[in-house]
């Protein structure tokens, strides 16, 4: 770990309660410049809850959050995006009836001149930028003007990812980006992540796939029952240690095949 690098995102004692349920219990988290980290944990361990707090989808019950050197509290996803955090959500968050550029620019459409909601869309510019963004991901989609709903899961995922990548943000968060994809499409998404690493864009990857995690990231944060129970460097650990942390069973050798 080169601690001289600037801290991009830090959370201190981040908590989230849903009614009486404590979904997140004081998460202390830290991400440095250019770093790719993974968040792993069992279902209900608080991974997605954590992501919802740092992307402004929900507001934490207590705790502090620092991004890019300043304390922040995001009231909405738009706040987080304006600060430079882009997220690819588990459920894709795409509008199936819209085409590719419309989805990539959803909520921040390019317009000719600003008339509020009655601004005219600059479709040409959006199409050109969408093409550019997709070229970064090296994924080919034959007709960008087709509705997203008519495309394969892989193509849609690539659109969602290129939406994040295209806006050259300070941080990209991916929640299970390959959960619904085939082998080849998964490889494509992994290649996109490697390319982001080369470009020096920090990334938080949430994944159940430990092989993927070991291949792609520098550090691994393990969540269990709403707490961060371990932070390990990916090249100084193995599947057994991670599975122990995930399950909370510290001894013995685990049959971790299902995770790898």
């Amino acid at each position: 770990m080169n601690d001289a690098r600037k801290i991009v995102l830090r959370t201190q004692g981040l908590c989230k309660n849903y009614g009486g349920v404590q979904a997140l219990k004081g998460a202390d988290f830290e991400l440095r410049e250019g770093e790719h980290i993974a968040i792993v944990g069992d279902n209900g361990a608080g991974k997605s809850t954590f992501v919802r707090q740092i992307t402004g989808v929900e507001q934490p019950s207590s705790g502090q959050m620092f991004f890019d050197g300043k304390e922040v509290s995001f009231k909405s996803p738009l706040d987080a995006r304006e600060a430079g955090i882009e997220a690819v959500f588990q459920n894709l968050a795409l509008a199936n009836d819209l085409d590719v550029p419309a989805n990539i620019f959803l909520g921040r459409e390019e317009v000719y001149f600003n008339l509020g909601p009655f601004s005219f869309l600059n479709e040409k510019k959006m199409l050109a930028k969408a093409k550019e963004g997709l070229e970064k991901t090296a994924v080919k989609i034959p007709n960008l003007r087709n509705a997203i709903g008519n495309m394969s899961g892989g193509q849609r995922q690539c659109v969602a990812i290129s939406r994040s990548a295209a806006f050259a943000s300070k941080l990209i968060i991916m929640d299970e980006p390959t959960a619904a994809l085939g082998v080849q499409e998964t490889t494509q998404v992994e290649n996109i992540i490697r390319r982001l690493k080369k470009q020096g864009i920090p990334l938080i990857l949430i994944s159940h796939n430990l092989r993927q995690v070991f291949n792609l990231v520098d550090r691994i944060f393990v969540f269990r029952r709403g707490e961060i129970v371990g932070v390990v460097d990916a090249d100084k650990t193995d599947g057994n240690e991670i599975v122990s942390l995930i399950t909370g069973v510290k001894t013995g050798v685990h049959e971790n095949a299902s995770y790898i």
């Binding site: 959500f89 795409l94 509008a95 199936n96 819209l98 959803l106 921040r108």
Partner: peptide
């Protein structure tokens, strides 16, 4: 209008 009709959650997450 189309985005909200197509996927209201996606529209919200996109900051609309």
């Amino acid at each position: 209008t189309y985005a909200i009709g197509s996927n209201e959650d996606a529209a919200r997450v996109a900051g609309i």
